[in-house]
Design a protein around this nucleic acid. Structure first.
Lengths: 219, 219
DNA sequence: TAGATTGTTAATCGATTAACAATC
DNA sequence: TAGATTGTTAATCGATTAACAATC
């Protein structure tokens, strides 16, 4: 009953929540090792139980009326929905601090994401080894993409070369781009782009701080 | 007409879009130097003109019927709404690659956000100077917060010390926390928290890649 | 049985889009 | 005037929440 393909488009917000459910489940303490209810899961990430069940309902549900969810079933189901069940190879272009920070992100392996290449133009960085991967010149990108069937490209370059980096990735067949540069990049519509714009988060924080301060001051 | 205080709670999505509007406006090419229409602005970030006007309407609007928006008015108005018009001081705790990447983020100054302290426990890092700021021991945090009236704390520590770092910030009076560690942190409800969880973005990308591939395969 | 649970439909709520008067 | 524009209300659309049958 948990294998239904969704007919309708799944809301973006539901996808974000699925990611948060999965995160939460993988960090669960001992006592929830085996089973968890929608109520308990919801409480842990500050949502309502019906929200959890409705989100799962898009995919036919992961449990059975009367029983609580089996944690293992949830994890496996969510991973399959999110496409984390089959291995994807990734490269990082731009090995400054941000690129090295991303390269050292510990969760990649567990998510079935495999880093196979690091690239830069800076001769000082080329030859360095990070996480057992040697930093290579960007000229080697086509070769590595072909050799490892890379599907995901991560851009951690300066903004002014982000677009040409994306172009290079697209030409060589990359299907998804995770963009950390502050500029929006464009690509053919069959290439998926996820922008990670720090400024949006920072401005949101600033807004929350402002409104919280105002509330406090008028009390 | 652009100074109305909103009575009702502003949707989170509206705030994110305001941030994107502001971003877009600050990157505008010459020809839009002076004025821009809701249609043009919307097109640049893939939205509908009515969405833009409705978002602005929450705050009473920024223009006048018949005229296009004055870019300068928009920028000033959005900055004020987002709380970017008065200076805030920030510190970064954790000066690994991620911390250094954030410290080097170029937009801070323009957004009225002022980095005044860098902290770590690693003796190798303490004493280093980044962006004219000397890395200090975390024991100095209380002193610096008091001296500079720091309101924003940025956590770029490993996950296992994220919560205690947050506690230290809260005790010393910090009002907003920008958390880059993969763990959710908790704080009193009068302290604002913005989590920046990479895994959510990465899982979203993975989901998009999966569904795009499926579509392609069934065509 | 009583209490707790999920799946699922229906009701509510909120956000986006459309329509249009007012203005230039 | 005709065309373009914003502000603002109304209509539509979609997402969240509530309710409840089925199940344990």
């Amino acid at each position: 009953m948990s294998d239904k393909q969704p007919k309708k488009k799944i809301p973006q917000m539901t996808i974000s929540r699925l990611a948060r459910y999965l995160n939460c489940l993988s960090l669960l303490p001992e006592e929830y090792d085996k089973e968890i209810s929608s109520k308990e899961l919801a409480a842990r990430i500050d949502l309502k139980p019906t929200q959890v069940r409705q989100d799962f309902h898009h995919f036919g549900g992961f449990g059975q009326a009367g029983y609580r969810y089996k944690v293992e079933d949830l994890i496996i189901g969510l991973e399959r929905i999110l496409g984390l069940d089959n291995l994807q190879n990734m490269i990082i272009v731009g090995v400054g601090h941000l690129g090295q920070a991303v390269a050292n992100y510990r969760k990649f392996e567990r998510l079935g994401l495999n880093l196979v290449g690091l690239f830069d133009i800076n001769p000082r960085l080329i030859g360095l080894t990070i996480r057992d991967i040697r930093v290579r010149d960007i000229d080697d990108i086509p070769e590595v993409i072909k050799e490892h069937k890379v599907s995901i490209g991560i851009i951690t370059t300066p903004a002014d070369v982000a677009q040409e980096t994306a172009n290079l990735m697209v030409i060589n067949g990359i299907k998804a781009i995770w963009n950390f540069s502050p500029k929006n990049i464009s690509a053919p519509h069959n290439v998926v782009i996820q922008n990670e714009h720090l400024s949006v988060g920072l401005m949101t924080l600033s807004y929350k701080l402002k409104t919280a301060t105002e509330e406090y001051n008028t009390k």
